[in-house]
Each structure stands twice: as structure tokens, then as C-alpha cells.
């Protein structure tokens, strides 16, 4: 498995463009940076620190995030707040049944003044892309976004254009109206590093949320706390976090367990995603090496949506069993 096949935009950038020698950020700085972002977002999203950390981990692990939940629990707010905390470009795509691929990737428009076709970039050209209610669009449109996630580039009319770095897709989907949605195929769900759920806030939290939001929406007031450059350097540092053989074996054993105990188990891409998020988790702790605890923290959100168990539900139970039964060195 080569890195290039699996990496997102960062990889393309690091390999193909002009800034190969970006100095990695020290790990305690990474931890501090992550903490700043999480604190910043938490000012907006009440009582969801764990979810916010997952988002930050996804960003640092060069992955993409799928948020699934009922409408109105703050999915979009979360994505917005995170992207605003980072001083980068943010675009939002509202997926609807009549949305076309070009609406995502961009179109060539004829400029009468210059007598040329000019590329009008779509919303995908941003550091953080929020794909709202991705399961409302038909598969063709979905796949336009998913291709961008996988390849880190967009091809329109035969011309390939690289996406910015960092590039992170945060997609949301709701699971309350199955009749009017196009469920994401397993192959595409697999491309999301993590899938998280937010869940309803507790009563106290909800009381506080509605209090805060009664006036101006606080998300509009979120100020950036990290620069794009910092995020890039943090991502390089995360990629350097040590994952020794015992940890890699542990990840592989977990994946093997899901394959043996579910109809569809975790792919090697899933294992790689788990290792990367574990690296990011270790970095959040300011630690230069991954320990099994990192893996255990990340496994449920990284593995569960990749497993199809026989009972037809998501693989949460399978992953939980895997964690309980797979021995740790």
C-alpha cells in the first residue's frame, strides 16, 4: 500500500508542489493548537467536546468526516465553527435532489470579453467543505464530491485541478427520512475517515444553547485561532508520530476480528485510517508515539461505519466486541 494512493490533498501537495520542506510543528504545539481550536468551538457547541475533538483529529489526520444525526442538533454549526476557527476558506454545499456534479466541482464559463472559457471553481475548492445533507443528492453528484475527497483533485472538461491544502470535507446526513434520501453506498462511506453522531444535548446544555442562540447566532462571531500554515505543519507533525509494530499489529488484529465476525469487515483503508487518527490522537496528548489507548479511542468512530454486521445494523457492536476481545500487548 503506497502512501500516494491513500493520501488526500496534503500528500499531493507535499509530493508534487513547491513546499516539500515544511518544518513539522513540535508536538506540544500541536497539542496546544488543537486545544485552542477545541476550546474555540466549544464556545459555540455546548457539551460536545468529544465530538469536537473528533473533528480536530480528522483534520489533523488528513481525513474527512461524516456526521450523521437527526436534523437540528448542530451538525452544520459544528462544521462551521471548526472551519471558522481555522483561518482558511470555507464553502458550503447544500445537497438537494436536483444538484448536479458541476454545481460541486465548478464549470467552464465562456467569457465574452476574453473570448475564452474560464473555469468558475465550485464550492469544493476550499480548505473546509461542508457537504450538508449529502444523502439528499443523487449518487452521481455525491460521487463528484467523493472523487475530490479521494483524489485531492478535480477534473473538469479534461483539465485536472488540484484542491487546496488542507482540504477537508465535513459531510452531514440525516437518517430520519430514508424514503427521500440516497443512502451512501458502502464503498463511498468507506472514504470517510470517521463517522460521528452528535446526539441530543442534555437538558441543561439545551437550556444554555437556546439561551446563547436567542440573539445573534454565535457561530458568526467565531474568530480564527489557527492559521492555515499552522494546520499544515501540525499535519506533518502528526504524520511523524511513531506507530511501533505492537500498535500496528494491534490495529491489524482489530481489523481481522471485524472481518471474521461480520458480513463485511474493515478494509485495509480503514486500518490505515485508524492508525492515522490514532497518531493524531497521540499528538493531541502531546505524545510522540501511539499507544493502544489512542487506538481504542479512535476505533469506534473509524471502524463502525465500515462494518456491515449480519443483523444489518452498523458495526458498533462488532467493534466493541473487537476491542473487548482482542488482546493488547
Amino acid at each position: 500500500m503506497t502512501d500516494a494512493a491513500e493520501t488526500g490533498p496534503a500528500g499531493v501537495d507535499a509530493d508534487g508542489t513547491g513546499e516539500p520542506e515544511r518544518p513539522p510543528m513540535a508536538l506540544d504545539e500541536v497539542a496546544a493548537l488543537a486545544e485552542r481550536v477545541v476550546d474555540n468551538v466549544e464556545a459555540v457547541i455546548v457539551g460536545k467536546r468529544a465530538a469536537i475533538e473528533h473533528v480536530v483529529v480528522t483534520v489533523l489526520a488528513r481525513g474527512h468526516l461524516l456526521v450523521e444525526d437527526v436534523p437540528g442538533v448542530g451538525k452544520t454549526t459544528l462544521a462551521k465553527a471548526v472551519s471558522r476557527s481555522i483561518d482558511g476558506s470555507f464553502k458550503r454545499v447544500q445537497f438537494t435532489p436536483d444538484l448536479l456534479p458541476a454545481d460541486v466541482t465548478g464549470v467552464n464559463v465562456f467569457n465574452q470579453r476574453t473570448d475564452e472559457f474560464e473555469f468558475q471553481p465550485g464550492p469544493v475548492f476550499a480548505n473546509v467543505v461542508l457537504g450538508d445533507e449529502i444523502n439528499r443528492a443523487p449518487p452521481k453528484t455525491q460521487s463528484a464530491l467523493l472523487e475530490a475527497m479521494e483524489e485531492g483533485q478535480v477534473t473538469t472538461d479534461g483539465e485536472t485541478r488540484a484542491l487546496p491544502d488542507p482540504f477537508c470535507v465535513i459531510a452531514t446526513q440525516n437518517d430520519v427520512e430514508p424514503g427521500q434520501t440516497y443512502e451512501l453506498p458502502v464503498a463511498e462511506v468507506d472514504r470517510f475517515t470517521k463517522k460521528i453522531r452528535l446526539g441530543y444535548p442534555s437538558t441543561e446544555e439545551e437550556a444554555e444553547i437556546i439561551g446563547r442562540m436567542a440573539g445573534d447566532h454565535p457561530v458568526d462571531a467565531v474568530e480564527p485561532v489557527a492559521s492555515i500554515e499552522e494546520v499544515r505543519r501540525a499535519r506533518v507533525a502528526v504524520a511523524d508520530v511513531d506507530a511501533t509494530e505492537p500498535v500496528r499489529e494491534y490495529v491489524a488484529r482489530l481489523a481481522t476480528y471485524t472481518r471474521q465476525n461480520a458480513r463485511l469487515g474493515v478494509s485495509p483503508r480503514g486500518s490505515l485510517a485508524l492508525l492515522r487518527t490514532a497518531q493524531a490522537r497521540a499528538a493531541l496528548d502531546g505524545r510522540g508515539y501511539v499507544i493502544p489507548d489512542d487506538v481504542q479511542t479512535e476505533a469506534p468512530t473509524v471502524f463502525a461505519h465500515r462494518v456491515r454486521s449480519d443483523s444489518g445494523t452498523d458495526g458498533e457492536q462488532v467493534v466493541e466486541d473487537a476491542l473487548n476481545r482482542t488482546s493488547v500487548e
Binding site: P292, D293, Q296, L323, N324, R325, T326, S327, V328
Partner: peptide, 9 residues
């Protein structure tokens, strides 16, 4: 120590 329990846990 249980099977799935990390040393730290």
C-alpha cells in the same frame, strides 16, 4: 488484566 484492556486503562 482483561483481554481488550490496555496497560494504561
Amino acid at each position: 488484566r482483561r483481554a481488550g484492556e490496555t496497560p494504561r486503562a
